[in-house]
């Protein structure tokens, strides 16, 4: 399935979302939609509010005003437990600094996401191994994050994000801490995922990543959407 033939179902809807931290305004009345199968890249200078947007969509932070709907669920109506369960079912997250648990092997880091949903350890490890295999790091499954390269760590992180088959994959500067070659690998990975129907919301400073992977680019300035454009993928 590709973005061209995806249904028009709205996965994410933001309506007048505002976020204040004391006196400063991180998001100022942002409204936008992301449809199934889209790959949306959010760009803008540091402090423009793009990471805040990602946190709002993930339910890690709450807006000061406005509403956020994911698959029709209003995040504002959920308590902390509800948000945690929502993240488990709907969201996969990839971070700039990977955020793998240092005490767990690559396999257990991936399996952990499945085990939190109640999947048995055996089932979770089986699925984790499949994902690691698909992402080309199965041979490092018993290694700890400290012994992996940056690119390998990020692929393990992507595998973990995909463990529960999320409807929305959020990536916060996924190539920001990687060398060029590893960054390329991660870009290809995200592109492949979107091509098989994974909805993506990627926050990045890297224009190459946006051009390569995104179907739509949203540019932020001072907490607002400055411009939006549909992209033709270069790859």
């Amino acid at each position: 399935m590709t973005s061209e033939n995806s249904s028009e179902r709205v996965v994410v809807r933001l309506d007048g979302v505002r976020k204040e931290y004391g006196q400063s305004v991180a998001l100022d009345g942002v409204s936008m939609e992301i449809r199934t199968g889209e790959a949306v890249a959010v760009m803008g200078p540091s402090g423009c509010g793009k990471s805040t947007l990602l946190n709002m969509v993930a339910g890690l932070d709450r807006p000061t005003a406005g509403t956020i709907n994911i698959h029709g669920d209003d995040l504002g109506g959920m308590n902390e437990t509800g948000l945690a369960l929502f993240r488990r079912r709907r969201i996969g997250m990839v971070f700039q600094f990977f955020n793998l648990l240092d005490d767990l092997t690559a396999l257990d880091n991936v399996a952990l996401a499945g085990q939190l949903t109640g999947t048995s350890a055996r089932q979770a490890r089986k699925r984790a191994l499949e994902l690691l295999d698909e992402l080309g790091v199965a041979d490092r499954r018993n290694d700890y994050p400290a012994t992996l390269s940056g690119g390998q760590r990020q692929r393990v992180a992507v595998a973990r994000a995909l463990m529960n088959k999320p409807s929305l994959l959020l990536a916060d500067e996924p190539t920001g801490a990687l060398d060029r070659q590893s960054g390329e690998q991660v870009m290809n990975l995200l592109l492949d995922l979107n091509r098989i129907g994974q909805t993506l919301l990627v926050v990045t400073h890297d224009p190459r990543l946006a051009e390569r992977c995104a179907t739509r680019l949203v540019e932020f300035e001072d907490g607002r959407i400055a411009r939006e454009k549909v992209l033709e993928r270069t790859a």
């Binding site: 890690l60 437990t81 945690a84 993240r87 079912r89 969201i91 955020n99 952990l112 996401a113």
Partner: peptide
């Protein structure tokens, strides 16, 4: 690590 676990859906 705790924040990561919460991002993965670990409840309070």
């Amino acid at each position: 690590d705790l924040a990561t676990l919460q991002s993965l859906g670990m409840t309070p």
